[in-house]
Design a protein around this nucleic acid. Structure first.
Lengths: 122, 122
DNA sequence: CTAAAGCTTGACGCCGGTGACAAGGTCAAG
DNA sequence: CTTGACCTTGTCACCGGCGTCAAGCTTTAG
């Protein structure tokens, strides 16, 4: 299939697909006229990328998952490198949550300080 | 005082101060040679800006606080507009925390799905 | 035959808050 | 006079993930 159909099937723009290719996450065969050609394995890969991105992974984070799928694994997350990314992302998220909680407390404190009584009426 | 001294006193770069001015958050008088001139009220304003930024406020978020100080209030956070920003930021932070918690759960679920047994050994 | 839809590469824009550089003016000390 | 510290404006670069044009191909439908 060509880029437009792939885009439609996985729900991304053609621009995004070309960008993924430029970043080395997907590859394309070219037909005689220069058009990109894709198959079902590409659908699988892009789907995996979008699933990961939907939970906050970056494209770089997704790379090991793509490699894992390409190497024949049925799941992109079963390779050691992917597992490492999962653990790292969980740790990152945990840290961000802690930071946000701390910031929330600081803001509330500044607020209470600057405007006594305001917080209780919020 | 000139920009270098102000920068040193509040612990920001001169570049940042010019940027704040460009964004309309601080103002400067100019001496005959074109150098920016500041006084204690500017020290106060920039200090307020940095305090707010240190807890994640953007420059735009800081604007009502600056206006509040300029209008003569001893605290930048006591004006209604500033209070509104405080409330909005608290709500934003709360939403971000909820999103992160939800994302964390999704990541953990994907992880558990892709690699059964991995999470428990984490 | 033509128009429309789809494809190609290339390049700029965005957002926030600067850092870093260029190319100059100013001013006090030695 | 010169050096060096300080000041000026202006501009490019960054990061991520694209959106959006531009200008030109191919293919398909009518």
């Amino acid at each position: 299939m060509r880029i437009g159909e792939l885009a439609r099937r996985v729900g991304v723009s053609t621009r995004a697909l070309r960008y993924y290719e430029q970043r080395g996450l997907i590859r394309s065969r070219r037909s005689a006229n220069g058009y990109r050609e894709y198959d079902e394995s590409d659908v699988r890969i892009v789907t995996e990328i979008r699933e990961l991105m939907s939970v906050g992974f970056t494209l770089e984070d997704a790379r090991p998952f793509v490699d894992c799928l390409r190497s024949g694994h049925p799941s992109g997350g079963s390779c050691p490198e992917s597992v490492a990314v999962y653990r790292r992302k969980l740790a990152e998220i945990d840290r961000e949550i802690r930071d946000l909680l701390a910031r929330r407390a600081e803001v509330a404190a500044q607020f209470a300080d600057a405007c006594p009584g305001c917080l209780s009426r919020a």
